[in-house]
Design a binder for these strands. Sequence first.
DNA 1: CATTTAGCTATACGCCCGTACAGTATGCTG
DNA 2: CAGCATACTGTACGGGCGTATAGCTAAATG
Lengths: 224, 224
Amino acid sequence: MLLSFDSELHSFKDGKVTIAPDPEDLTARARIRDAALRHFGEHGFERATIRGIAETAGVSSGLVRHHFGSKQALREACDEYLSKVLSRLNDQVRADSHPGTVNYVAVARTTLGPYQRYLARALAEGSAAAVFDEMVRLSEEWLAVLDRDRPDPPLVDRRIRAAVGTAMSLAVPVLHEHLSRAMGVDLFSPEGDELLAQALLDAYSHPILTVEAATAAQAALRRH
Amino acid sequence: MLLSFDSELHSFKDGKVTIAPDPEDLTARARIRDAALRHFGEHGFERATIRGIAETAGVSSGLVRHHFGSKQALREACDEYLSKVLSRLNDQVRADSHPGTVNYVAVARTTLGPYQRYLARALAEGSAAAVFDEMVRLSEEWLAVLDRDRPDPPLVDRRIRAAVGTAMSLAVPVLHEHLSRAMGVDLFSPEGDELLAQALLDAYSHPILTVEAATAAQAALRRH
DNA sequence: CATTTAGCTATACGCCCGTACAGTATGCTG
DNA sequence: CAGCATACTGTACGGGCGTATAGCTAAATG
């Protein structure tokens, strides 16, 4: 389940970073990283403890420091790992399907599966900036294809729209708990997922504003 | 700027809660609560310290415990306070304007102004559930009005759509930092706000899916 | 074989934080 | 005036945490 493709198994000692040759997973280092992803995701960065992470990884707490240097560096390693998973996912999608047919962000959200909780926490805590930026970039590419079919040109820069769309997609995992409570279903369950999909379809296909109201509002914005 | 209408200045001692008569603000209790809102909002619940909060409130750390009992209880008092601000805001909007003309959630977001950072943090950390639920309720009322003008009935329960919409609106303050970085403007600045408004208008008035694609997708969902 | 290097453990240090509590001043009540 | 509750301070305690470091083992290196 836990994908891994570490060619960069480096360790930390006395402030220097060295490269170890072993590309095999099940490495203690990888186990620690996976445990950290889980703990950070479940309890948040502050509440998660190095000792707790070490325990689930089946190693001593000292080894965590040996490999990652500090708690903050461990967090950054997790972010970097997620970035790598995302870019690999991106390559795969790009190879498999025609551009514009898939909502990258939605795909990323679902495929990031076990890391979703971590990603949500990290983003809310201000971390994982690279992952967010990458998702915006992907969303931008996707929008570029969609824009070709639009009758009138959009007023707003594509990057802006991509950023807003990305943020809104990510609202689902970030606010997962509240959303599930309000909807009465666990969002991560099959029924919850379907309900969400239907709600999004409804929103996407039925604009809240009429086109007339929207253009009037835009005109008002431009005047002001 | 900090509204306050405390008729409930109660203090904590030995597990019991008593009511004090003074409705005047500038009370130490109110100052502590305001400082807590700021500290929790800026640093998050875990990183914020009682001593730090006490210092900005200009009181001793012991007084914080005296009034609120524990850090967790202080957090809950903040949540409750926000709930009250929201409901008061709601009454005001309801009195001023016709129903359906205003996007409640958007109004709430902006009017909650100084508390936005706290609200965002609290929601991301799983707190402030009552505030979220209240916003869903308001959004539901708003949708009820909009639905009257819709040609075909929506497939999805109104509450579900309200919840999803609320979550997406809240993505803005919650992911404020990342969003601002990706957009190249601070979202809380006037330009950022206008950009965001335009992007939302664009999304609201130009459905990402054509109606045909959406109905096809919905049919596929129903088959599956 | 001698020496180094990486992986790993165990223990200890020191800080910071939430909490507890004793104590003081002030003002209200009967 | 006596008694008591409330607002508030200062200090102290205990624990948990990140971090540091010494030391062990085993494999790699020359």
